[in-house]
Design a protein around this nucleic acid. Structure first.
Lengths: 160, 160
DNA sequence: TAAATAGTTGGCGCTACACAAACGATCCGT
DNA sequence: ACGGATCGTTTGTGTAGCGCCAACTATTTA
């Protein structure tokens, strides 16, 4: 086989995302626990803040979680007063879930508290690079994942 | 309260990392399964390839896993012929773990197969941005997390 | 030579899921 | 008006991925 470049590894982000996310999560837990939060709560609160309010089905889609798991997650957050469920006037079967003021404040507190975690876990990156990372992650996650029907039609390897 | 900027949210990457990593993982599983791999295998193989060979303790440190869980993880990979454990000539208590040729090849195959997953999950980013994301993740994860002693000395919030 | 270290095995427990079934309330199409 | 579909809830089962512990063997160290 002809010799190629020394580094022939494919440049994939998946393993690195898992790796970095795990480190961040481990470091975060001790900071979040006093606030009554777990990393999965943080993800849900972040998505809800950005969306301004959404159905449970919508949230399940965004988080790629089974609906029954979203129910449990929201039960935690609602019990803590961080979110509220309101019946949709358009369809009273449906809840619209949104952050309470308490929830918005708690999320902000959590993010402030996580500054030291990010300083540590992202210590190899300078502030501009951290900003770039944040921006790339935000834009990558803001794209709504395709629905099952869309994905199944387009991609046989899809989960659906 | 005086009115502030509209967006006063802290710019933290933790929740977004979890969110994106989860999406990537879900999409990856169907691609990795035919190769006999799970996402946690991929992380370990990636770390081992980069390190060229390391002790189990070293790997446990890099992955921030309990040593007994690294034993189980390596048992999977060794059984599949993807890694080998060799006694260190310097200290025969210790194993040096490295990728086999089969393992290096399988990892490359996995990364090729994951191209479509990354196209989908990172669809909102253009190729240059994906390259930037990869680079930032790689550099952030390459910094070895501090040992417990180091972290405990410097940071009371540390996990240790 | 005793204590410490590296790794292994087996076990227990927890969290975070996936998935299924059954149900009540509500909406929609016929 | 009614049956089917939808939204959400509860309960239950199971799996994966861990953390942590104890006990052990082999080896190194002081």
């Amino acid at each position: 086989m002809p010799a190629g470049p020394v580094d022939q590894t494919e440049r994939r982000s998946g393993a690195l995302l898992d790796h970095l996310a795990r480190r961040m999560r481990l470091r975060s837990e001790s900071v979040l626990a006093p606030l009554g939060l777990r990393p999965r709560h943080l993800v849900a609160l972040t998505v809800l803040r950005e969306a301004g309010g959404m159905s449970q089905q919508g949230l399940a889609g965004r988080l790629q979680l089974d609906g029954t798991n979203v129910v449990g997650l929201l039960n935690d957050l609602e019990t803590a007063g961080l979110v509220e469920r309101r019946r949709s006037p358009e369809d009273r079967r449906r809840h619209v879930v949104s952050l309470t003021q308490t929830g918005a404040k708690r999320l902000n507190e959590a993010e402030c508290a996580l500054a030291s975690v990010e300083d540590e876990v992202l210590g190899a990156l300078d502030p501009a690079e951290r900003e770039t990372l944040y921006d790339l992650l935000r834009r990558a996650t803001s794209e709504v994942p395709p629905t099952c029907a869309e994905a199944a039609g387009n991609d046989p390897d899809s989960l659906c």
